[in-house]
Amino acid sequence: MVTIRPETAADIPARELLLDRAFGKARRRKTSERLREGRVPADGLAFTAVDGKGRLVGTVRLWNVIAGSAGPALLLGPVAVDARHQNKGIGKSLMAHAINTARVLGHGAILLVGDAPYYSRFGFDGGLTRSLHLPGPVERARFLGLELEQGALDGAEGLVSAAGVAAAPAEAVVAA
């Protein structure tokens, strides 16, 4: 049995190890990382999946960004599930939980860079980000958006930039 709960400070070492295993050390050089570095996740939007023994087996976090002319939005990622626990619906549960919580908290849109066939099942669409761009290289087909409020990304254009709360120096090191 897996439980999804808010991330705690005690989760950080296991989360970082999971992300390194899932994405490699090069994960810190990705364009999306430019929007996360030096920031803390959006309030109430960092989640951990733990197994019946309390071991971290999955993670997802959302970050405050400005989606060009559309204004405030969220950036989802990274989402990861431990290799031994994949194909059990944990990633799907983490995504659904994150999206639903963001909607309940009143956020209008979520952006991400990821596999379009996977994320389209949650409603993410590359057409919503057509006129937005990120602060670095990204495969255009992987830059996706989801409107939590109808029209939240209508006419959105311009640079996606970081927003939200800056991390304290110690938090910035482990927030990636």
Rank of each mutant, 00 (worst) to 15 (best):
E16V: 13
I110G: 03
F143C: 03
A49T: 08
G151M: 03
S93T: 11
V81Q: 03
R84C: 11
L159F: 02
R121H: 08
L18T: 12
K25A: 15
I99R: 03
R84N: 15
V60A: 12
G44S: 14
A175N: 14
T48H: 06
V165A: 14
A156C: 06
Q150M: 03
L159S: 15
A67H: 05
A176C: 10
A102K: 03
Q150Y: 01
A168D: 14
A102W: 04
R29Q: 14
V165F: 01
A80C: 04
P169I: 12
T129C: 14
A22S: 15
V165M: 09
V60D: 01
R55L: 10
A163Q: 04
T8C: 09
I66K: 11
G52V: 07
E33Y: 11
R103K: 14
K25V: 13
A49V: 12
V138K: 07
S32Q: 02
E37I: 13
L62G: 06
A83R: 12
R121S: 09
A163F: 03
E147M: 11
L56F: 08
T31P: 08
G77Y: 05
I110E: 00
V50A: 15
A170M: 08
T101S: 11
D82I: 07
I90F: 06
M95R: 01
A49D: 03
A109C: 03
Q150H: 07
A96R: 15
A116E: 06
H97K: 10
G106V: 05
K53L: 15
L19F: 11
Y119V: 07
T3A: 14
A163G: 01
H133E: 07
F143T: 06
A9C: 02
T101F: 02
R61S: 15
V65L: 07
T31L: 11
G24P: 08
L62T: 05
L94I: 06
A141I: 01
M1A: 10
D125L: 11
T3H: 13
F124L: 11
V50M: 09
T48R: 06
S131Y: 05
G68A: 11
R142V: 04
P169K: 13
P78A: 00
R84P: 01
G106E: 00
R121F: 01
H133W: 12
T59C: 09
V2C: 00
L153S: 04
R21M: 09
V113D: 04
F124V: 02
N87V: 05
A176N: 13
A96E: 05
G38K: 10
G106M: 05
A67G: 11
G91W: 00
L35R: 04
N100Y: 00
K53T: 15
L134D: 01
I66T: 13
L112I: 10
